[in-house]
């Protein structure tokens, strides 16, 4: 399972990088969404995968069953999902405002901070 997911993560990262290298702001955003999904899968994968058996402590026992899924990467991924979502929401609104101000979503034409040098 882990090997399959390692391959899937590689594929998603490749797609994300390709999209982020686009000139169109929306495609860059698509790339960012893909990248955060890929990273979350990667984090869970390196903590080793268990089918089913969530990290819960059954009634009547004091400690968690050692065969249960690894809880630590799950906690990390939960945090990462929410942070990724915040980033996406901010970046989307930023793009929306940038379009309102500049009238374009072509990143190579957004040059307020670094205007093109006149030769």
């Amino acid at each position: 399972m882990e090997v399959i997911m390692a391959l899937a993560v590689g594929g998603m990262v490749a797609g994300a990088v390709y999209l982020i290298l686009s000139r169109q702001y929306l495609r860059v955003m698509f790339g960012v969404i893909l990248l955060s999904n890929a990273v979350n899968v990667a984090i869970l994968t390196v903590g080793r995968l268990t089918t089913g058996n969530p990290p819960l402590i059954a009634q009547g026992t004091e400690v968690m069953d050692h065969a249960a899924a690894n809880p630590l990467p799950q906690a990390l991924v939960l945090t990462a999902i929410v942070i990724g979502f915040s980033l996406l929401a901010f970046a989307l609104v930023l793009g929306y405002r940038a379009y309102q101000e500049m009238g374009t979503l072509d990143t190579s034409a957004m040059r307020v901070a670094e205007p093109e040098e006149k030769p």
Binding site: M5, L7, G10, G11, M12, A14, V17, A38, A42
Partner: peptide
């Protein structure tokens, strides 16, 4: 670039 980075990520995960 994209395939390279994706490949590197997979290799690192493995």
């Amino acid at each position: 670039l994209a395939l390279g980075i994706g490949g590197v990520v997979t290799v690192i995960l493995l």
